[in-house]
């Protein structure tokens, strides 16, 4: 049976559009070739995620330990270095272990924490008001009695001074060290630092005891 012109064309078209084994193989090769960098990218992303997870753990560990350290009474943690390769646990008053510095294993990664406490040094600058020789000093800030505020406007009653706060302030620094990846030998560190003032026993402290 003789095929119509349309059938002949369609048959030809189908022949032209069909894929040979060679074409499929070449196509697969090209696809595989393009997938190599994509898979590498994916693996890299997974590695970065793991590294970020460790970094965030280190940051949280550092922050929580620092916050806890500054909550301890001023005199309870003396100037010095704690933890690191050694171990140090600070306990609450009833003896419960509360704050640990040293090496800890968190989710299969080792984190080394160190607390470094130093004396903070510096000076305060201010204008000081000279109450000496003025009438009824005791009533200066009370609701009754002589109004002292009139003296505050007199420049002669004010003088500038600079006072050291060396014995009243400490700097607490917590450092966390960890290995960011099994593939690297490098050690990362993260340090947070905060000042803590001595507000203990303030009823016994007056201005004259401050070093000038």
């Amino acid at each position: 049976m003789k095929k119509s012109y349309l059938e002949q064309c369609l048959q030809k078209e189908m022949r032209v559009r069909a894929f040979s084994l060679l074409e499929i193989m070449v196509g697969l090769f090209i696809m595989a070739f393009t997938f190599i960098p994509l898979i590498n990218l994916l693996m890299g992303t997974l590695e970065f995620t793991k590294r970020d997870d460790r970094t965030i753990t280190a940051i949280n560990l550092c922050y929580s330990k620092l916050k806890r350290a500054v909550e301890f009474p001023f005199l309870e943690i003396a100037v010095g270095t704690y933890g690191g390769t050694g171990q140090k646990t600070f306990s609450t008053k009833d003896g419960t272990p509360d704050l640990f510095f040293g090496v800890e294993n968190i989710k299969g990664t080792l984190y080394r924490t160190t607390l470094n406490v130093t004396q903070a040094t510096g000076t305060f600058t201010l204008d000081t008001f000279n109450f000496t020789g003025l009438e009824d000093v005791s009533s200066s800030f009370s609701d009754s009695g002589t109004d002292m505020t009139k003296y505050f406007a007199v420049p002669a009653n004010w003088s500038s001074k600079t006072v050291s706060y060396d014995n009243f302030c400490k700097r607490y620094s917590v450092t966390v060290e960890w290995q960011p990846s099994e593939k690297q030998n490098a050690i990362n560190h993260y340090t947070l630092s905060m000042l803590k003032g001595n507000f203990m026993g303030f009823t016994q402290v007056n201005n004259s005891s401050v070093q000038e």
């Binding site: 305060f124 201010l126 000081t128 006072v163 706060y165 009243f168 302030c169 905060m194 000042l195 803590k196 003032g197 001595n198 507000f199 303030f202 402290v205 201005n207 401050v210």
Partner: peptide
């Protein structure tokens, strides 16, 4: 903290 300390001292 430092500002509070200054307030306490003076």
């Amino acid at each position: 903290e430092l500002a509070l300390l200054k307030f306490f001292l003076f």
